[in-house]
Nucleic acid binder design. Structure first.
Length: 212
DNA sequence: ACTTCGATTGGCT
DNA sequence: GCCAATCGAAGTG
């Protein structure tokens, strides 16, 4: 079995609770994820490991915002950030650990017209190239936080497709502090040389306020 | 109650 | 390359 970190679940797949979150982030590459009439082939994902991971939203424990990350696998964590963007995670690991995989980018392979209308005339390459863009293409917002990937008609469907020829890993995007150290947490995974992978940007250094 | 800033994006220099 | 947008979560007092 090639994708050991995923298991059958209703009409599709879900992360295995006993699989390392990094392996899930790798194994979702090349899979198809569908919501609201659009299907995306996943090209890039990042692992976040709860209380073990200073870069994770769940590092400091459960809050109203991140509660769904502490739930069981087979559900999504969708959060709102920067006052305007949403991002999609798959809940991973044993219930209560707060582990998850951020789906960072992909190629729209079905429902292209719908995705274009949601994304307002950008190039097809940019329809879902980046976490905020991908969430917009899939029409995801906070109302979808906690949605199920299970059942015969799940809210979010993950299915296998062609396994990528070659994958790469490296530091996570936009993660500052200890969790941003690629040597400790090289937990961004992508399909090597795929044009639908987002551009890497280092975390912006924290600016100190000027003191008069 | 108040302040800071974010797992980002798009527009402009 | 640089920065404004935009708002709520989380941290501080």
């Amino acid at each position: 079995m090639v994708r050991d970190a995923l298991e059958p679940c209703g009409a599709g797949l879900r992360p295995r609770a006993d699989a390392p979150v990094t392996q899930v982030a790798h194994d979702v590459l090349g899979c198809l994820i569908s919501h609201a009439g659009v299907t995306v082939r996943i090209t890039e994902a990042e692992a976040y490991a709860g209380s073990d991971d200073p870069g994770a939203h769940t590092f400091r424990g459960r809050t109203a915002r991140n509660a769904s990350m502490f739930g069981p696998v087979g559900h999504a964590y969708v959060y709102f950030t920067y006052g305007m963007h949403h991002a999609l995670n798959l809940v991973c690991g044993p219930e209560g650990t707060g582990h998850g995989v951020l789906i960072r980018a992909g190629e729209v392979v079905d429902g292209v017209d719908l995705a274009r209308s949601r994304r307002g005339g950008v190039s097809d390459r940019d329809l879902a190239r980046g976490p905020g863009r991908l969430a917009q293409a899939l029409a995801l917002d906070r109302t979808h936080d906690g949605m199920s990937m299970e059942g015969s008609a799940p809210d979010l469907l993950l299915v296998p497709a062609t396994v990528p020829k070659c994958t790469s890993s490296g530091p996570r995007v936009g993660v500052s502090g200890p969790g941003g150290d690629g040597e400790l947490f090289p937990w961004r995974f992508w399909i090597t040389e795929d044009p639908y992978v987002s551009a890497y940007r280092p975390a912006k250094p924290r600016r100190r306020p000027a003191r008069p």
